[in-house]
Amino acid sequence: MLATPGTLPPAAQDARWAYETKQDGQRVVVYLAGDGSVVLRARSGEEITGAYPELRPLGAALGVTPAVLDGEILALDANGRADFQLLQPRMGLAHAPARAARLAAQSPVHLVLFDVMHLGGRSLLPLSYARRRGELEALGLEGPFWSTPAAMVGHGAQALRATREHGLEGLVCKRLDSVYEPGVRSRFWIKIRNMRSADVVVGGWVPGKGRLLASGLPGAVLVGQRAAGRLRYVGNVGTGWSEPEREQLAGLLRAAVSDVCPFDPVPQVAGARWVRPRLVGEVRYSTRTRAGMLRQPSWLRLRPDLTPEESAADLPDEPV
């Protein structure tokens, strides 16, 4: 079951919803057969058990009781916050057990469990979220590399504010009376992502595809921020424009065309076209990688009131 992007439920309906922290990890369905084994499957259906050997003991956590659980695999940073970049080296290692074991010993992942779909041979899919949550919490699934974080009923504005204050990815709102709908992006689950904004300098662009390519309009702009006296590339932005805004930006880019890349170091971007770094824009994004790259950026607006020198950012000395 998937969540639909949205906003907090109306205050008058607040008590009908539960609120969970939105996690930045790999969604997983956990199959416990009741014989001590565990099978992990990603959203695609691919089995990924071998990538996370530290989670194998979970297979014995319920004894002979079989269960199918819903959760998210996280890699935690030094502050205990989920960091998707830290998780990436572990993803894709389902068929590389030796490497997965080495990384598991160095930096074990943590599995958070937030729903139960089958238990003891019974399907819980028709039950309400509130009843399924009660069944899940009664299992007491707390271990060295897994846990069942609490959900807050009501107080949605307070919960969202807490995620922002603690630098977390966001909030998931779940209707207490909602049944579990496998594979459905349901309006009974609402996800709210905490987004940040930043001022960036446009240093290049890549052509669009299809109609955009034929009309010479950009598919994405390449943006950077000033750090340590140079313009550091922080990502490409390809969403957030209206058609008139895209056409306006295309004209500005054509007027600033250059043969010289303004970024230091030069990013490896296929098909990149460079421009003189004089346009400043504001973008919205979710988080940054450890190298300072923007994750999930989208365009907000041009900032003609700012100079390129005002786009300074606190970035790492060198990309990692």
Rank of each mutant, 00 (worst) to 15 (best):
V116R: 00
L300E: 13
L113P: 00
R303L: 05
R99Q: 15
P265T: 05
R16P: 04
L315I: 09
A130Q: 14
R122S: 15
L160Y: 01
A159L: 01
G36M: 13
Y19G: 04
L8A: 12
H110F: 13
I48C: 13
V206M: 08
G224N: 08
R90W: 07
K191M: 08
A11N: 07
R81F: 07
P262V: 09
G216W: 03
T289L: 03
E318W: 10
A214N: 13
P66R: 06
P89H: 09
S242G: 06
G203T: 02
V223N: 00
L74D: 07
V172W: 00
L32M: 07
R175Y: 05
Y180A: 02
L139W: 04
A11I: 10
E245C: 06
Q225D: 13
L279Q: 11
Y31M: 12
R161K: 14
P144K: 12
Q158K: 12
L217F: 10
P89M: 10
Y31W: 14
L62Q: 11
A61S: 15
I48M: 15
A82H: 04
E247P: 01
R43N: 09
V200H: 01
R81W: 08
V153C: 11
E169Q: 09
S215T: 12
V202H: 00
L176E: 11
V30R: 03
P149Q: 08
L279D: 03
E282W: 10
A159Q: 04
V153H: 13
R276Y: 03
S258Y: 06
A100M: 12
R81I: 08
W146P: 02
E47Y: 07
A228S: 14
W189N: 00
R232Y: 07
R16A: 15
V280L: 02
A98N: 13
F188D: 13
G59D: 09
Q225F: 11
A60N: 06
G63S: 12
G156A: 08
A60T: 12
I48A: 11
E247G: 05
V172E: 00
A82M: 10
L222Q: 00
P218A: 09
L119Q: 05
L127E: 15
L69T: 00
R303P: 02
R196S: 08
V68I: 14
G134S: 13
L249K: 01
P244L: 11
P207C: 03
T148L: 00
V257W: 03
Q88G: 07
A33L: 05
K191P: 07
Q158T: 13
C261S: 14
Q26D: 15
P207S: 08
G45Y: 04
Y180C: 02
G281A: 15
R56P: 04
V275Y: 00
K191Q: 11
R303G: 04
E135W: 10
E310F: 01
L58P: 03
E181G: 07
W146R: 03
R301P: 05
A255N: 15
D264Q: 15
H166G: 09
L111W: 11
D305M: 09
L252E: 14
L136Y: 01
T4C: 11
E46H: 14
G271P: 01
G25F: 04
V223A: 02
Q26V: 13
G219T: 04
V172M: 06
P144V: 14
E243V: 09
G281V: 02
R81A: 15
